[in-house]
Design a binder for these strands. Structure first.
Length: 268
DNA sequence: ATGTCGTTTGTAAAACGA
């Protein structure tokens, strides 16, 4: 089972990259963020031709998330939008995926956390409220007690090692309140899959388009895959695929990929 | 360097968000 998350920054512009990457990587489930397109303009046909079905929570201009599920895997959409949180912005979609030879379905979330713009701005207040509602929903539904994967663009670099050395540790994407919000998700029992494995130093998932940031590796690790304890015995690898960031006219984000052992192999 | 993208709107430059 291979799961991945990728902020594509406009699916209309990035469709060729998405197609190329799907053919190369063949994930079973891919979470997408920043579609920037309403559901009726989502390129479902092009994606179906590559063997994927989609749950789409779209919106014109901004935001927009989706979950692509490889054909042959039974699944159902479980929620569109953050349950219990009135939100005009399309930032979350949930699906339940039936794995072969598994008793419990895998609950998967594609989430596009608010950026927050600047610490103490109105958008920052909204960001913290949104994450609070997300954590409350996970807690209320006891999702951490099930096979559960929360993945997406969190817009938070959880620790100093997740930012390039010059990034302000009290600024947006790294500030103490944002890191505390991320820590609350971990306190529910969820685990940052990337940090379960040895990783190259200065591993990042996002680089600003400006200032040659990618060339100089001035990035942040803000795209994450959190998993519930039930999945820990199945973790095999978690990597950031920087290759698409090198392609012409790239997204500013790179995909993050998680490999899970099949359920059949987990009994020890 | 206010340095780049993607989208929208008073369809052309500017605003907005990231």
């Amino acid at each position: 089972m291979k799961l991945a998350t990728w902020n594509v920054n406009s699916i209309a512009v990035r469709l060729p990259h998405l197609q190329r990457w799907l053919v190369d990587a063949r994930p079973d489930v891919l979470a997408l963020q920043e579609l920037k397109c309403p559901v009726e303009k989502f390129p479902a046909q092009a994606i179906a031709e590559l063997g994927y079905e989609a749950a789409v929570h779209g919106q014109k201009t901004y935001n927009g998330v989706a979950l692509l599920v490889r054909e042959g895997l039974p699944w159902r959409e479980a929620a569109r939008g953050l349950p219990g949180f009135a939100d005009e912005q399309a930032r979350l979609v949930v699906a339940e995926v039936e794995e072969p030879a598994s008793e419990a379905p895998l609950v998967v979330v594609s989430a596009y956390f608010p950026n927050g713009q600047a610490v103490s701005s109105d958008k920052f207040v909204y960001k913290l409220a949104w994450i609070d509602a997300l954590a409350s929903w996970i807690e209320r539904e006891r999702l951490a007690e099930r096979p559960f994967v929360l993945m997406g663009d969190f817009n938070i670099a959880p620790a100093p090692d997740d930012t390039h050395p010059d990034w302000p540790q009290d600024g947006i994407l790294a500030s103490p309140p944002e890191r505390a919000a991320f820590a609350r998700l971990l306190s529910l029992g969820l685990v940052d899959a990337f940090r379960r494995f040895p990783q190259p130093p200065q591993s990042y998932s996002w680089w600003d388009y400006r200032q040659g940031a990618f060339r100089r590796n001035l990035g942040l690790r803000i795209d994450h895959i959190l998993v519930s304890p039930a999945l820990l015995p199945r973790l095999r690898a978690c990597t950031i695929d920087v290759e698409p960031r090198r392609w012409e006219r790239p997204s500013d984000h790179a995909p993050v990929v998680l490999e899970l052992a099949p359920t059949a192999e987990t009994s020890t």
